[in-house]
Write a protein that binds this DNA or RNA. Structure first.
Lengths: 341, 341
DNA sequence: AAGGGATGCGCAAACGATTTCGCTTAAAGT
DNA sequence: ACTTTAAGCGAAATCGTTTGCGCATCCCTT
């Protein structure tokens, strides 16, 4: 049995309440008593029981992180680890703890979330994705618990805090980057558009084409899901009578994958086709050739979201702010000006 | 104020204790009462307060995961996310929660761990690395809390549960794989040898050389740390008068990195030099060329470690078991038989 | 009809903190 | 010298559960 506040109190000849006040360094206790009590705590090896405190204070000092299906994507993509890193950094600094969902299916994850909030295990949550028809966010808004989503929330944005990039713009810039290099036929490969990021980037891509008076070629626009192999979609696009010379892809992994598929077809990057990807995770620079990538500052995304969340937890504000993290194009070697023939 | 067990009790005309027993589905309560109580719980929207339960039961149903410095390595390397995935899978199945450390320096992480165990926030821990002179493991053994380390623990192994690969052997096999292909000059690049994995793999590498009557060339053995650039070490090795034709590297990232550096020097893989790496994370197959890699079954590593831990938590055994996860060479395109001249 | 299990629930004491009041005691004001 | 006032601390309630023990009630025995 561990030593409790009462044991300390007895040993120090004070009341438990006094010990408690010493712990929280209350100004109502004299320095003398504090010293005495602290000494006893030290001697007895006292340690605060977190749960007991939580029970009465009703604040867990813990935030929950909900990821998307860990099986498929979340933990394979360096994205999640990186936002986690950002979140983690802030949490540590603010002395908050992190608890993550363990579910693998959407439903299981949802149940995890329910348990977290109903069981009062967390003070707030960060939802690391934004997806159409997802039950998590609606549940959270109606539960009233503070939370923030990384990405642009679907629906009534002013009731939901969020931290996001301006993905439409970023995608537009990425596409225009290729256009500026002389590419007139640029393709787009993204995640399924249920994910808001993918959708936004796709519209940014189309916007760029439109603004530059380029035709939007539906055959150039592909979205990936687990069922369809990258190789097939690359084949489909590159075997077109009039294949693209540039690709905008929504993440670095897809970029690597594309690189690989093109290599199999003996298509050279950047000589034959250029590639620009998103996220600028560490693998972008490790690719051969290193990928030009839009840095979405994932770490910051995580850091800021934790910051917003904890602010909100500490004093719930009327208005739910949303912050936009800027993006930067990081040029490497996967893009090349189109050759004039 | 949320609805408590007492509210339910009042509404259902039973005692709080009865409600509690209904929750745990005790056989001492009649089906009739159970139905009645459950109905009331449903109607009132009752949800168990996790902390209150923890306080009395003394079991948090939560395990802590300690990672190595998140800043530098942990979350950049797909290794950690992947073991997390394995851990997560088992935890979900066993209804355990996961809480991760947030510290970034070794010292901060240590403090996190102390808080977790002293504050009774977790029932057990998984230490996702094994490093020399680390304070975490010693602290855990003397605290008496159940824990398991992923990797081979330093020191008295029979007091510590662990889940690991046979890294010496795996490295020997990897090296011999190259030797079998005719390579006589094979180099080794690994993490700093404070990390047990790196050390083990290095000795496996040397063992292979010895067993095959090959000279151990110190200039071929390199270890990486943050301060030294990959490029430099590659230069050092390849600019040797008698450069190696094969590389054993201790992880896929280093493999990618090596690939990149070689490309800069216009050295072709696998034509000029062969590479075999460790872990077989997803990036191994996305490399150009795809890397031949030793699959260490990271997911299993995580899964098994969680399994051991939870078993131990449920009934602490006298002897601390340690399990070895087999490794498999996954051949891809980064190795080639040496050309006979 | 009395004794003897089962069976079904309730009482009340934990669990380890925090916190609201109120009680001393001593210093200060008049 | 007597009231005020503030400083320093303690008593006890509280947070929401679980659980050991005990008390009825009911059905069987004999």
């Amino acid at each position: 049995m561990a030593v409790t506040i009462k044991d300390v109190a007895r040993e120090a000849n004070v009341a438990p309440s006094t010990v408690s006040r010493v712990i929280s360094d209350s100004p109502r206790i004299s320095e003398k008593t504090k010293r005495k009590v602290r000494k006893v705590m030290e001697e007895m090896g006292y340690h605060l029981n977190h749960n007991a405190r939580v029970l009465v204070q009703k604040s867990t000092q813990t935030i929950g992180i909900v990821m998307k299906n860990s099986t498929s994507a979340s933990l394979h993509d360096p994205f999640f680890p990186e936002v986690l890193r950002g979140i983690s950094a802030l949490c540590h600094q603010q002395e908050y703890n992190i608890s993550i969902t363990t579910g693998e299916s959407e439903e299981a994850i949802f149940q995890d979330v329910v348990k977290m909030v109903q069981g009062k295990r967390v003070d707030g949550l960060i939802v690391s994705y934004s997806k159409k028809d997802d039950k998590v966010v609606p549940f959270l808004v109606q539960s009233g618990i503070p939370f923030v989503v990384v990405g642009k929330p679907i629906g009534k944005a002013n009731e939901i805090m969020s931290v996001d990039n301006d993905n439409i713009r970023a995608a537009r810039e990425a596409t225009e980057f290729l256009i500026q290099l002389g590419h007139k036929k640029v393709a787009f490969i993204g995640e399924q558009p249920q994910f808001e990021v993918a959708a936004a980037r796709r519209t940014g891509y189309m916007e760029a084409l439109r603004l530059n008076d380029l035709e939007i070629e539906p055959a150039y626009i592909k979205s990936l899901d687990k069922t369809v192999l990258m190789k097939e979609t690359v084949d489909e696009v590159m075997d077109l009578p009039n294949p693209p010379t540039g690709f905008v892809v929504t993440d670095d992994i897809t970029g690597l994958n594309l690189l690989l598929c093109l290599r199999e077809k003996n298509i050279k990057v950047p000589d034959d086709v250029s590639i620009i990807s998103f996220n600028n995770t560490f693998i972008a620079q490790l690719a051969t050739p290193p990928l030009t990538s839009i840095d979405t500052q994932i770490y910051q995304l995580g850091y800021e979201s934790a910051k917003c969340l904890i602010e909100e937890i500490k004093n719930p504000s009327m208005f739910k702010k949303s912050v936009i993290i800027p993006t930067i194009i990081v040029e490497r070697e996967s893009c090349m000006a189109i050759k004039v023939k």
